[in-house]
């Protein structure tokens, strides 16, 4: 393990977050088992009050997870030169096989927590806690992922051993260069561009349709999910190239660096929020028939769809703007 301050910070935070999640999940289980809205008993009152605690915890979790996502990338980038052949975060993440899974779990738990908060938002507007079961089941789904993230991250950090000069011999005869993972992922530019444009257009159209006349809920949800994946692929295959103005630097991480005006932060933030909002619309759909949510869910879906479209449009605008001002010209 490397005693880097960033690593320590991530380590401590993930432990705290896990503790919080375990605590919330335990209360969640109790709520699932003992919940009885018709009862006037004190236990029911206590359980209802706990719902406030749990939603507070998940809200903080979402915020911390977002910062930790970026700090993780930042830290990976800042320690890359400790590893022979690593040029940026990509290289550091491939030092052992736990790097990318950690990142993936961070993104996944962020999305689930975001969805949970959308569900919570709807539930709080119904007068009879209509989504209480769904909400706490989702929490129980979230918890293992959070724990997995902590464990995988732990393995990742403990597996990091820097290649440093030892006193016995001068040169480490370096292994072959790392950091090829993203090159493999990179799709050829033209198909990627077409895919990106089509999926963005389709998602925004679906979002607008839902916003205007309330139709096509599952379509928007599915398209948001697809667009998320397509956008990440596009980021690797061509968007990053324009930002770096280099025809072969396929890296999704360096764009959060100062050299590129921190453009990665708004981009990923918009992409993540658009995706969470789009998916959330679909998640709410099965509960549309609950009596207390009849009018509430469509309104929330409309709001979410509108916000998702705004996020995706902004994302696409920033990307297009970066492509336009880039000195790199490709077809």
């Amino acid at each position: 393990m490397i005693l880097n301050p960033g690593i320590l910070a991530l380590f401590i935070t993930s432990l705290l977050i896990s503790l919080m999640t375990i605590y919330a999940a335990c209360h969640g289980i109790q709520i699932l088992r003992r919940w009885d809205i018709a009862s006037g008993s004190e236990l029911q009152l206590i359980l209802e009050r706990r719902t406030y605690l749990i939603s507070t915890i998940v809200t903080y979790f979402l915020a911390f997870q977002l910062v930790s996502l970026f700090l993780f990338i930042q830290t990976a980038d800042s320690i890359c030169h400790l590893f022979v052949g690593a040029m940026c975060a990509v290289g550091t993440l491939t030092v052992n096989s736990f790097g990318y899974p950690t990142l993936l779990l961070k993104v996944l738990t962020f999305i689930i927590a975001g969805l949970w908060l959308i569900l919570n938002y709807a539930d709080n507007r119904g007068y009879d806690y209509p989504l209480i079961r769904a909400k706490y089941l989702l929490l129980l789904i979230l918890a293992p992922f959070v724990l997995a993230e902590t464990v995988v991250q732990c393995f990742y950090f403990f597996g990091l051993t820097p290649d440093i000069i030892t006193s016995c011999c001068g040169t480490l005869y370096s292994q072959s260069a790392r950091g090829i993972a993203s090159e493999i992922l990179a799709l050829p530019v033209i198909p990627a561009k077409i895919l990106f444009s089509v999926s963005m257009l389709a998602t925004c159209a679906a979002g607008m349709r839902l916003f205007l006349n309330g139709k096509g809920v599952y379509r928007l949800a599915a398209l948001s999910g697809i667009t998320f994946v397509v956008s990440i692929i596009s980021m690797i295959s061509f968007i990053s190239l324009y930002i770096y103005e280099m025809p072969s630097h396929h890296c999704p991480f360096c764009i959060v660096q100062k050299e590129y005006g921190y453009v990665g932060y708004p981009l990923y933030l918009l992409l993540l929020s658009g995706t969470v909002l789009g998916l959330g619309v679909g998640l709410l759909q099965p509960f549309r028939n609950k009596k207390s949510l009849e009018h509430i869910i469509p309104a929330i879906q409309q709001k979410c769809a509108g916000a998702a479209v705004v996020a995706f449009v902004l994302f696409t605008s920033i990307v297009s703007w970066q492509i336009l001002v880039s000195s790199l010209k490709m077809l």
Partner: peptide, 22 residues
């Protein structure tokens, strides 16, 4: 607070089993 049993109506609206925020 909420009663242990029984119901209370204010202007025809039953307030007994409403969540705290309502």
């Amino acid at each position: 607070a909420r009663p242990t049993t029984g119901r209370i109506f204010v202007n025809e609206l039953e307030i007994t089993s409403l969540p705290e925020r309502f």
